[in-house]
Amino acid sequence: MKVAIGIDLGGTNVKGILMQEDGKILKQHYIPTKDDAKGKWRENVLEMVNFLRSFHQEPIEMVGLSAPGLAHEDNRSIAHLPNRLFGLENFVWEEYFGIKTYVLNDAHAALMAEAKFGVMQGYKNAVLLTLGTGVGGGIMINGQLHQGLSQMAGHLGHLSLNATDDELSILGMPGSLEYAIGNCSIVRRSMGRFQSTHELVNAYHKNEPFATWLWLDSIRKLAIGIASLINALSPEIIVLAGGITTAGSALFEPLHAFIELFEFRPKGKTTLIKQAEFADLSGAIGAAAFAFNQEK
């Protein structure tokens, strides 16, 4: 059975797996990224690849690598990522590793993990939303990852929910979904009362009035964003991933109630909304899955 290495290059850690084509993980490993201005962090990625190669007697045929930023159209490098991981842009990993290497955006990789081995299995048209510091995502159309022009499909956090909002997202969108629920805006949204979404949810569990209003208002806006995606893409399933989903029923119960208000349901058909199966290894799993798909 074919074996691939999957790498998830994050700003804090490099996560790596050795995985069979059927999804069985033979080895997993974590090392600090140690992002630095000279780009020496690339040596840590190479260290990860060599470490995983040492656990397999046969030569490794391929590597999948997920990273923040926009992938090049040939999926051999990251074409655009300003202000982070100096030296990542246009760096061809295949030449560095000496192994066939496929590169994709980290949110796209998370979608690949769910589509191949997680809760998206069996569906052809799906959307993944990552809810964390920011809001990202990925789109699957007819069973294929949709990367789009400039590989930027899936920037779902930059949908506008309020065109009159003066605060712009990093892509220049007013009233973005990212600012409605992302952890990046919690201090502003809470007028300084909460430093994280985790703090907000804890206060919500205690029935604090302001926290209850703010949390439910954020979920209402998320529901409007999801309903807008349903109207535009008509997916069979929408999967939510990322740290905010650890709120569990505090997120999903009111979300389903708000979706009832906003989703158009011809003939009573509803779009499934589920929590992602994979957590911190989703990028590495999805990167390896993408590599397998590219070799078919």
Rank of each mutant, 00 (worst) to 15 (best):
residue 43 E to I: 00
residue 38 K to R: 09
residue 64 G to W: 03
residue 105 N to P: 06
residue 38 K to W: 01
residue 272 L to C: 02
residue 84 R to Y: 15
residue 238 I to K: 12
residue 173 M to H: 05
residue 251 L to D: 10
residue 7 I to Q: 08
residue 248 G to I: 02
residue 88 L to S: 05
residue 86 F to T: 10
residue 140 M to F: 08
residue 233 L to F: 15
residue 266 P to M: 08
residue 149 L to V: 12
residue 276 A to P: 12
residue 13 N to P: 01
residue 208 E to F: 04
residue 57 Q to L: 13
residue 99 I to R: 09
residue 192 G to V: 02
residue 241 A to V: 05
residue 187 V to N: 00
residue 44 N to G: 11
residue 186 I to V: 15
residue 203 A to N: 07
residue 279 A to K: 14
residue 212 T to P: 00
residue 213 W to L: 03
residue 55 F to G: 01
residue 168 L to V: 06
residue 7 I to V: 11
residue 235 P to A: 10
residue 226 I to E: 12
residue 232 A to E: 01
residue 178 E to C: 06
residue 236 E to R: 09
residue 266 P to S: 10
residue 18 L to M: 11
residue 11 G to I: 11
residue 228 S to P: 00
residue 38 K to P: 00
residue 280 D to C: 02
residue 122 G to M: 10
residue 170 I to F: 12
residue 103 V to D: 09
residue 190 S to A: 10
residue 291 A to N: 04
residue 251 L to G: 08
residue 83 N to F: 13
residue 168 L to M: 13
residue 115 A to H: 15
residue 35 D to I: 07
residue 78 I to Y: 03
residue 50 N to T: 08
residue 36 D to Q: 05
residue 126 A to I: 04
residue 254 P to I: 02
residue 161 L to Q: 08
residue 66 S to D: 11
residue 259 I to N: 01
residue 54 S to Y: 06
residue 189 R to G: 04
residue 95 E to N: 15
residue 61 E to S: 09
residue 101 T to K: 01
residue 159 L to K: 06
residue 289 A to G: 11
residue 61 E to I: 00
residue 46 L to V: 06
residue 42 R to N: 03
residue 35 D to Q: 15
residue 86 F to E: 08
residue 114 E to G: 08
residue 152 M to Q: 13
residue 42 R to D: 00
residue 177 L to K: 04
residue 222 L to S: 00
residue 95 E to C: 04
residue 30 Y to V: 14
residue 23 G to V: 05
residue 80 H to V: 12
residue 105 N to H: 06
residue 3 V to Y: 15
residue 144 Q to M: 10
residue 23 G to E: 13
residue 43 E to A: 11
residue 142 N to G: 07
residue 175 G to T: 05
residue 272 L to G: 05
residue 228 S to A: 13
residue 205 H to D: 12
residue 256 H to T: 09
residue 96 Y to P: 00
residue 74 D to A: 10
residue 237 I to R: 14
residue 236 E to T: 06
residue 74 D to W: 01
residue 95 E to P: 05
residue 265 R to G: 00
residue 196 S to V: 04
residue 161 L to F: 09
residue 83 N to H: 14
residue 276 A to R: 12
residue 54 S to W: 03
residue 170 I to R: 10
residue 107 A to Q: 05
residue 178 E to P: 04
residue 172 G to W: 12
residue 218 S to F: 04
residue 78 I to T: 03
residue 78 I to H: 04
residue 141 I to R: 14
residue 45 V to C: 12
residue 53 R to H: 03
residue 154 G to D: 12
residue 3 V to A: 13
residue 148 G to A: 11
residue 46 L to Y: 07
residue 2 K to L: 05
residue 39 G to C: 09
residue 182 G to V: 04
residue 22 D to M: 01
residue 47 E to L: 14
residue 229 L to Y: 11
